[in-house]
């Protein structure tokens, strides 16, 4: 379990997080739900060891192996789709295993025919699918997804959400999922933290896994 305890984070003179605590359960999908700019990405980046805290404690990150679906695809423009996946797997698998893993994930995101394309030749949605395939193909135990379905059309979003569910059931990982889309939050999450701004705090925790009344959750999220 990753825990942020009484964390304070300042940017210049602005205090973004003050005495903030949150925990992400092992092998569960925890969603941080809230408006843009509230500080969700900073919280995720602290959990991912990308950002250090000024005060407080972060635990559970020592043994963590991360993969991350960023808001934007963050692909290497000078490499092909295939090589972008190969880039992150090179130090982990031998060439034959890499080929097998990459081909299977490209097939899952329906990009097998585009394996030799450069990211600049792909649409925004296609690039994001490459980024998702990269995150899934990487053998992490913590997966962070920062608004991963932004820019995808409805049909593709549904396909990838069900693909994600399938993959996650097959190989469970701790997932930190950021969104401000109500349907995404409900359909994917085990637990939802509703994050509020000024000061950044958890306004409400919803245990989606043990709640059958999805309509009520939807209403709460819409009103938050």
């Amino acid at each position: 379990m990753i825990k942020l305890m009484n964390v304070t984070k300042k940017y210049d003179d602005m205090e973004l997080l003050k005495d903030f605590s949150i925990s992400f359960e092992e092998n569960e999908i925890t969603c941080m739900f809230g408006p843009s700019g509230v500080g969700k990405t900073t919280i995720a980046n602290i959990a991912a060891n990308l950002v250090t805290v000024d005060e407080g404690k972060v635990s559970g990150t020592e043994e963590a192996v991360y993969s991350y679906v960023f808001q934007e695809p963050r692909l290497l423009d000078w490499y092909s789709v295939y090589d972008n996946l190969d880039f992150v797997l090179k130090d982990i698998y031998d060439i034959a295993k890499r080929k097998e893993v990459i081909e299977s994930y490209l097939e899952m995101v329906e990009l097998s025919d585009y394996r030799e394309f450069r990211p600049k030749a792909l649409s925004g949605g296609m690039s994001q699918r490459v980024s998702i395939a990269r995150a899934f193909a990487y053998p992490s135990n913590i997966l962070i997804m920062d608004e991963p379905f932004k820019g995808l059309d409805m049909k593709l979003k549904q396909d990838i959400v069900s693909l994600f569910k399938k993959l996650w059931k097959e190989s469970r990982r701790t997932v930190i999922f950021i969104t401000h889309d109500v349907d995404e939050a409900i359909s994917l999450s085990d637990k939802i933290y509703i994050i509020k701004n000024r000061p950044v705090e958890i306004n409400m925790i919803i245990d989606v896994k043990n709640t059958n009344d999805r309509e009520s959750i939807k209403n709460i999220l819409l009103l938050s």
């Binding site: 990308l50 192996v65 991360y66 934007e72 963050r74 290497l76 490499y79 992150v88 090179k90 130090d91």
Partner: peptide, 21 residues
């Protein structure tokens, strides 16, 4: 910096970051 952050997340070796980024 965003690409470098991506490399950090995926624990890419420094020599490969130099070569590829």
């Amino acid at each position: 910096n965003k690409l470098l952050q991506m490399c950090k997340i995926y624990s890419i070796k420094k020599t490969r970051v130099i070569k590829s980024v």
